[in-house]
C-alpha cells in the first residue's frame, strides 16, 4: 500500500496520493481524489475508465498541461524521473515535455498545426530538444517516419496535415512523440477516432518502438479490450479515484472491484448473442457533491453499511490492490491483513 522512496527511484512516473480540484462559481469539482499511479521503466501501463473519471486529468496534471490558475492541487506529489513537475514553471516544463515525456492526443488534426508542413513541425521539435542542426533533424525525422511505416517520408514531410488521412496523421504524431527519445510516452486515447485496422497497426507501432527503446508508456483508454492487448499493468478509475490495479491479465480474468466486474460484464463480447447485457444502473456521481463513502456505492449491487459511511482505501499485496470494503478485510484489521 505504501510506496517507499527507495522504490520511487526506479520509476518513470510516480504519482502519489494526488488530489486535484477545479474551482467553479458553484463550488469545487473534486476531479482527483488520492490518485496514486506508478509507472516503471520500460513498462506499458493502462488507465481505464469511462468519460469524466479523471484519467486524462491525472496525466495532464502530472505533465503540467492543465491551464494555469484554473485548478488547485490539494494534496499529493508527482515525480517524473525524480523531478517534481508540480513545482516547475512553464519554461522548465517545456524542457521536460518532448525530452522526458511526450503526449499523443486523441484527435491528431487538433494536435498538429494546420498551416505548417509536417516536416517543419517535426524538425522544430527535434531541433528544440536535441540541439541538432537542420540537416540532422531532417534525417532523424525521415528515419522516424519510415519507422512508423509511412511510405515516401520525404514526400510526406512536404505535405500539410489536411493532406493526410486520419491514420497517417496519428502516425506522424506518434513519430513526433518518439522523435526526441523521451523516457515516457503518454498516449491519451490515441486510436479512438480510427478504424480498427489502423488502430491495430498503431498499437503495434507504439508497442514495438517502446519495447525496443525501453520507453515507458501510459496508455489511457475507455476500451478495455485494447488495453488487454497492449498493457502490462492496468489501473481502473472511477469518479476520480483508483478503484483497482494490478497485472492486466489478473485484473481482467478475476476482477475484484464491483465496478471493474460490471464494466466487463456489460461488454457484448463476453455475452451470448441477444442476451441481455448487464448494464450498470444509475449514473456517475457529480464530483461537486460526491456521495459519502465509496463513490460507486449508489450503483453497487452489494453494498454494506460501511460503504455508505467511509471510503475504502486501496489494499492488497503483490502489486494488486482494490478499494472495496467487501473485497478487503474489515476496516480496523485491514492494515495488518494487507501487509502480510
Amino acid at each position: 500500500m505504501m510506496t517507499g522512496t527507495a522504490e520511487l527511484r526506479g520509476q518513470a512516473l510516480a504519482i502519489h496520493n494526488l488530489s486535484l480540484e477545479f474551482p467553479t462559481f458553484s463550488g469545487a469539482v473534486k476531479a482527483l481524489d488520492n490518485v496514486s499511479i506508478n509507472v516503471g521503466k520500460a513498462e506499458i501501463v493502462g488507465i481505464v475508465g469511462e468519460s469524466g473519471c479523471g484519467k486524462s486529468v491525472t496525466t495532464m496534471a502530472a505533465t503540467g498541461l492543465l491551464p494555469r490558475g484554473r485548478y488547485r492541487i490539494t494534496g499529493g506529489s508527482v515525480r517524473l524521473f525524480n523531478h517534481n513537475t508540480l513545482a516547475m514553471d512553464e519554461s522548465q516544463l517545456q524542457d521536460v515535455r518532448g525530452k522526458m515525456v511526450s503526449t499523443i492526443f486523441q484527435e491528431p488534426m487538433n494536435a498538429l498545426n494546420p498551416t505548417i508542413r509536417i516536416g517543419k513541425q517535426l524538425t522544430d521539435v527535434i531541433m528544440r530538444h536535441e540541439e541538432a542542426s537542420l540537416p540532422d533533424a531532417r534525417r532523424i525525422a525521415r528515419d522516424i517516419l519510415a519507422d512508423m511505416l509511412i511510405g515516401e517520408p520525404e514526400r510526406v514531410m512536404k505535405l500539410y496535415p489536411f493532406e493526410l488521412s486520419g491514420g497517417m496523421r496519428q502516425r506522424v504524431l506518434i513519430a513526433m512523440a518518439f522523435s526526441c527519445n523521451p523516457g515516457l510516452i503518454i498516449a491519451d486515447e490515441p486510436t479512438t477516432a480510427l478504424d480498427v485496422t489502423v488502430q491495430a497497426v498503431i498499437l503495434r507501432l507504439i508497442q514495438n518502438r517502446a519495447r525496443r527503446t525501453g520507453t515507458s508508456v501510459v496508455f489511457i483508454s475507455h476500451n478495455v479490450a485494447v488495453v488487454s492487448q497492449l498493457c502490462d499493468r492496468l489501473y481502473v478509475m472511477y469518479a476520480g479515484r483508483i478503484v483497482e490495479h494490478g497485472a492486466t491479465r489478473t485484473v481482467l480474468d478475476a476482477p475484484l472491484h464491483p465496478y471493474t466486474q460490471a464494466l466487463l460484464r456489460c461488454l457484448p463480447e463476453r455475452v451470448a448473442p441477444k442476451q441481455e447485457l448487464e448494464a450498470i444502473t444509475g449514473a456517475v456521481p457529480t464530483l461537486m457533491h460526491p456521495p459519502a463513502g465509496c463513490y460507486f456505492q449508489p450503483r453497487c449491487k452489494e453494498p454494506v453499511d460501511l460503504c455508505r459511511s467511509r471510503s475504502p482505501q486501496l489494499a492488497g499485496s503483490d502489486g494488486r490492490e482494490v478499494a472495496c470494503w467487501r473485497r478487503g478485510v474489515a476496516p480496523e484489521t485491514s492494515e495488518q491483513g494487507s501487509r502480510q
Binding site: T197, L205, A225, V226, S228, Q229, L252, E269
Partner: peptide, 23 residues
C-alpha cells in the same frame, strides 16, 4: 483482416503483417 484487427480479450494484438494496412 477486419476481424483479426478488432480488439478482443481472446486474441493478442495482431502483427503488422497480419493487418494488411492500406488506405
Amino acid at each position: 483482416t477486419l476481424l483479426a484487427s478488432a480488439p478482443s480479450f481472446a486474441s493478442p494484438l495482431p502483427t503488422i503483417a497480419e493487418v494488411r494496412m492500406g488506405e
